[in-house]
């Protein structure tokens, strides 16, 4: 009974990914950059779910679980890096962090 067109789902995936890329390009705050990466990861996972719905196979959902775990690890490390950068440089502007010398 449920026949949402696959093409519409894939187009939505592409639009969400492009929104994520746009956010990555236009924002210079590190927190917003990480949020844009989250939007892009979510869009990629949605493509897997749509494909799993097309072929009625569980493989796409398994891939989404892997993407979820990877996103969790990435966010944990990324937020720890953001905290350290803020404590060291007192700013989150990505353009002002180009003089990292260790």
């Amino acid at each position: 009974m449920n026949n949402v067109p696959i093409m519409a789902g894939l187009i939505l995936t592409g639009i969400l990914f492009m929104i994520g890329v746009t956010g990555l390009l236009i924002r210079r705050n590190l927190v917003f950059i990480l949020m844009s990466i989250e939007i892009m990861l979510n869009a990629a996972g949605m493509a897997f779910i749509v494909a799993a719905s097309k072929w009625m196979q569980p493989d796409g959902q398994v891939m989404f679980i892997f993407i979820l775990a990877m996103a969790a690890a990435e966010v944990a490390v990324g937020l720890a890096l953001i905290l350290q950068i803020f404590h060291k440089f007192k700013t989150l502007d990505a353009d002002k962090l180009n003089n990292m010398k260790g």
């Binding site: 449920n2 949402v4 719905s53 959902q61 989404f64 679980i65 979820l68 969790a72 966010v75 905290l83």
Partner: peptide, 30 residues
């Protein structure tokens, strides 16, 4: 709607729950 209720529950619990709360914690700390 695409026939994956288990993934929908995981999305709400882990993405909208855990990861977003982590973001909010860090933003509040900053």
């Amino acid at each position: 709607l695409f026939g994956a209720p288990f993934i929908a529950a995981l999305e709400v619990i882990i993405y909208a729950g855990a990861i977003m709360v982590l973001f909010i914690f860090v933003v509040m700390m900053l």
